[in-house]
Each structure stands twice: as structure tokens, then as C-alpha cells.
Design a protein around this nucleic acid. Structure first.
Lengths: 143, 143
DNA sequence: AGAGATTTGTCCGTATGTATT
DNA sequence: GAATACATACGGACAAATCTC
């Protein structure tokens, strides 16, 4: 129902649409796992072309907000961190987008970055959507 | 001349094309800073449609592999980390894709994840493409 | 299993705008 | 200004994957 897209605005239509959907996700109107309206439906409802819809969904996918399956549709991605990894002194950490191969191995969706933790000569990869890194706390101090 | 794209394959054409280009980047056939062939050229060479090319480039962009400039073309992105950030005991770190707003504030390209470093009640955002987190090596010393 | 509906993937044509060369 | 190249946006058509009955 939200008729808030302005084709004459500076901001691209597909970005406006992505904003709408992103907001709907962040405000809980769209819940994790929930199926979005189909591309055709979104185009109708918002009165935009299918290109704009597809570009908007691609953007949200790249942000890790949704996952898309052919023949099915796009779902809101569940972003809950479950795994804690302890960092040690001397560890260095970088982050980047994984290769498709790494995505497959880690079992993560598109739009999800990875942690690269280097410890000595070794290197460990962690899925960014379910990992929280923690710097080891001293035995006696605040939690 | 790489005629390796199979329209009848399970894998989507634009993903196959993205694979080809990604491999070319990773094997050094395409070097950082180097300009890719134009979209039209890629479509001709690989005998695929405009949509497939644009979708492939969008995917690579979302992976941080390339950057695209309007009126110019797409270049292989140089991924060198320049800034070091020291982590302290008790810090927790997550990573995710930034919102468009955060991207703007940090001045980073699409396809670049961010670090979220939580220290106490505060929260700091760091651009993932130029930041390396380090766990301080000193036994007893902090700010 | 088989048919049909739904949804995304891909092709194409066309058009306008913006930025670079 | 002209040529080139990407960005955005509309439209139609069919293929391929999935789901439902």
C-alpha cells in the first residue's frame, strides 16, 4: 500500500524501493524467513518496472538483507549471531566478501561477509552472520 | 575467446560470467586497476545478453571485486588494508554489510563490509577494505 | 506422476540521463 | 560538440526452477 515512490526524485527508483523494503524489514513488518511479494507483484503495487524491482532486490541481496531462490522468491534473511570466537593477543582480523567457494563451504548466503582471523601462520575463516569475535577478558575484572 | 558459458547449465548465465571474470582477477589475468571490457563488449564476446552482463558486474561489485565508474567502465579493485585498529580486552566485533547511509559516511564502495567494534556502551564502525584489527600484544597496558 | 500456476532468470527493444574522453 | 560507456527505467516474451494439486 505504501505509495511513496517518486519517479521524478533525484534518488533512483530502485533505491527508493530498496529503502522501503529495508525499512519494512528493520521495523519488523517483514519478518525473518518471510517471503516477499513476487517481483511482478512489487512492480504492480509500487507502480514501477520490473528492472527497478530486480535492481532493488539485488541491492538488498548484496546487503545481506534477503536471499533469493529461483522459482520460489525472496525471503528476509535471519541475522542472528550465535557463535562466539575468542581472540588472542597477536591475532589480526580482516573482513571481506567470500568467494562463492568459501560461501559454499561455510554455508552462508550472498551478501554475508567473512572474518579472516590470522593467528601466527594460520588463518581461520568465520561466517560473518553468525560469529561475534571477543577479545579475551582477564579473569578478574568487569564482565 | 573463452567460450565457457553454457546457457543450458544449472548455474545462471550471469553467475557463470561472474565466475569467469572472478577467476581472471584471481589468476592475475586481470590486474588491480585494470579496466574490464565494456558491458557491450562482454556481451558480444561471451554471447550473452545485456542483462546477464550487468547482473554479473553487479554481483562482482557486491563482492568488492570491481568498482564501476559511470562513463568509464569497471576496474578491478585494489584490496589493500592500510589502517590498523587496536582491540582491547572486552571488545566484541561483528561484521556485516553497511547500509547505504553508512557507506556514504565511511566513504566506501559497494561490496565492502564493515567492522562493528563494541567497547563498553560505545560502538565504532570501520571500513572493511582498509582496516585490520589487531589484538594488542602487550601483557598489561590499555587506554 | 503429471499438469498447471507461480516465480525468477534471461533475452530483447527502446528511451533518457549522466559522466568521461 | 561528438562519441563512448554506464545508470536507470519502461515494456514484452520465453525459459527454467519450484510448488501445488
Amino acid at each position: 500500500m505504501p505509495r511513496r515512490i517518486d519517479p521524478t526524485a533525484d534518488r533512483a527508483v530502485y533505491r527508493q524501493l530498496a529503502d522501503l523494503i529495508r525499512d519494512a524489514i528493520n521495523t519488523g513488518q517483514l519478518r525473518p524467513g518471510e517471503l516477499l511479494p513476487s517481483e511482478g507483484r512489487l512492480a504492480q503495487v509500487h507502480e514501477v518496472g520490473r528492472d527497478a524491482v530486480r535492481d532493488a532486490l539485488a541491492l538488498l541481496r548484496s546487503e545481506g538483507q534477503i536471499v533469493t531462490e529461483r522459482g520460489v522468491g525472496s525471503r528476509v534473511r535471519d541475522q542472528t549471531h550465535t557463535e562466539n570466537v575468542q581472540l588472542q593477543r597477536g591475532d589480526t582480523v580482516t573482513t571481506r566478501m567470500p568467494t562463492p567457494e568459501e560461501r559454499r563451504q561455510l554455508g552462508i548466503a550472498e551478501g554475508v561477509p567473512v572474518f579472516v582471523v590470522r593467528r601466527g601462520a594460520g588463518e581461520m575463516l568465520h561466517a560473518g552472520d553468525r560469529t561475534r569475535l571477543e577479545v579475551h577478558d582477564q579473569p578478574a575484572d568487569e564482565a
